[in-house]
Nucleic acid binder design. Structure first.
Lengths: 187, 187
DNA sequence: CACACAAACGGAGTCGGACTCACCTTATGG
DNA sequence: CCATAAGGTGAGTCCGACTCCGTTTGTGTG
């Protein structure tokens, strides 16, 4: 029910500006930017920020949900172009790449993970579903071991996304390869 | 240089009481217990807490460092009793088990990870060294693939320790198995 | 275009945490 | 048993997220 009336023009603009400001702040590494700072960047007052987002965290969540939605579109696309197991491999690497957009996002994620917010559950479920899709295709093709749920795999990936020390990209690629090999070895 | 003079008797007692109180608070799930609460549990005032620990986080770190030290003793013991690859497998599972002691600890860890505290770096380095020891033995025995550093493996494990939704133990065991198989498949 | 009014905004103020500091208490060595 | 420095105390400060209400503004109506 997203009805209830279409936001007023200025309200929609401000909401967008806040999301953009927050995303930028996170991507430029200032993962725990103060609400004042985010509001300032967006050219509004804190009161306005709170009109649009219940709490600071709700704002962070929204930014994250958009990122996840983008990633969730990938599996279908990959399956259309590659063999199932190759699609899995590429998706894992894509995830790493996506995290590389800004390590600030990883920090923001942790702040969300630290609270059992239901919105995060939704995002996780969505990601798990996307992974299930990939894994099922792999299992059907006999290329991937059976019995691994997307949810389980997602847990391991969460750890990868949480990396942040320098040189982490290489490490991430390496650990992803190990996971991938593990997924195939038991088939 | 831990010299400088042996703490006065009451000071040592209070410091110990604070560490115990904090550990208990974390293990019973109250991962972000307030400093007032921790001090109260220890039977001292906040001022005393701050006499012994620079910040709240410094206290959390100390608790964590003790946990890590305990875990770091495991590899040597396991290598004395099991074949290298079996020792690796058991250590991974031990790590899971240890996290199970209290999910509160995992949350405390994240709060540490979120700050680039050097103390955490030390702990991580120590754990990485312990894992290196295990992996090297496995590689020497031809049971584990070469080219995986303890540091890399630790990253993946960090993700596992961060789990907390119900049923996470099973998931942790499963993902650990996948990692283990991956470590062997490339040998 | 003018008006009415609900929607949206601003920003000073509240509240709840971590942390400090000036003063009091007590262990300890002589 | 005294001197004294180490240690303890807790009211108070600081700083961040969040609230609230008076003011401004977009928009549907005549």
């Amino acid at each position: 029910m997203p009805s209830s009336r279409p936001l007023r023009a200025d309200a929609r603009r401000n909401r967008e500006a806040l999301l953009t400001a927050a995303r930028e702040a996170f991507l430029t590494g200032d993962a725990d930017a103060h609400v004042e700072e985010i509001a300032r960047r967006a050219g509004v007052a804190v009161g306005t920020l709170y009109r649009h987002f219940e709490t600071r965290e709700a704002l962070v969540e929204e930014v994250y949900r958009q990122e996840v939605a983008e990633l969730c579109a990938a599996p279908a696309r990959l399956l259309a172009h590659y063999a199932p197991d190759e699609a899995v491999r590429r998706f894992l690497l894509l995830l790493v790449e996506h995290s590389a957009v800004g390590k600030g996002m990883a920090e923001a994620l942790e702040s969300i993970m630290a609270t059992d917010s239901p919105i995060f559950d939704d995002a996780r479920a969505e990601m798990a579903r996307a992974l299930d899709e990939l894994l099922a295709a792999g299992v059907a093709a006999g290329a991937i071991r059976d019995g691994v749920s997307g949810r389980v795999l997602l847990r391991a990936l969460g750890g990868i996304c949480g990396m942040r020390a320098k040189g982490w990209e290489d490490d991430a690629v390496r650990i992803t390869t190990i996971l991938y090999d593990g997924l195939r070895s038991g088939r």
